[in-house]
Computed example of a mutant assay.
Amino acid sequence: MTQTNIAILTVQGMSCTSCASRVERGLNATQGISGVSVDFKASKVHFNYESSALLDKATGVLSDLGYPAQVA
């Protein structure tokens, strides 16, 4: 069984539900990431990931979407 870790990222630039949906879709499309939950009002995203490399991948995906992120 693969160990699952929980990440909380602070995301810049999310100002509406459309932004939150874009962030959610981007992370859900990343293999090894699951359980994505976005709170655009708090500028946070929570998700489960399988390896530390996926945490870096997630921040890269968000940056590519125009939403720079860092570990909260």
Rank of each mutant, 00 (worst) to 15 (best):
Y49L: 09
S21C: 03
P68V: 10
A7F: 02
Y67H: 07
A20P: 04
S37G: 11
T4G: 04
L27F: 03
F47A: 08
T2C: 10
R22A: 13
S51P: 05
V45H: 02
G35F: 07
Y67D: 01
T10Y: 14
P68R: 07
V61I: 14
P68F: 07
Y67P: 02
I6N: 11
Y49E: 14
T4E: 12
F40Q: 14
D39M: 06
V36G: 01
A29V: 03
K44R: 15
N48F: 12
V23M: 04
N5Y: 13
Q31F: 11
F40W: 14
K57G: 01
G13A: 07
S34K: 12
G13Y: 01
G32K: 03
G26N: 12
G60S: 12
A7H: 00
G32S: 09
S63A: 11
G60H: 03
F47E: 02
L62T: 05
C16P: 02
K57M: 08
G26H: 12
D56F: 11
C16N: 10
G66V: 04
A53Q: 15
E50I: 12
E50Q: 15
G66W: 05
A42M: 11
H46P: 00
V45L: 09
D56I: 06
V38H: 05
S34F: 08
K57I: 09
S15C: 07
V45N: 09
S21I: 01
G32I: 04
L55G: 06
V36L: 01
C16T: 02
G60Q: 13
R22K: 15
S52Y: 13
S63C: 00
S52D: 15
M14V: 04
N28Y: 00
S51Q: 14
S34D: 11
S63V: 03
N28T: 04
Y49V: 09
A69W: 10
N28G: 02
D39N: 15
G32E: 05
K44I: 13
E24C: 02
S15M: 11
E24R: 06
T59M: 14
A20W: 05
R22E: 11
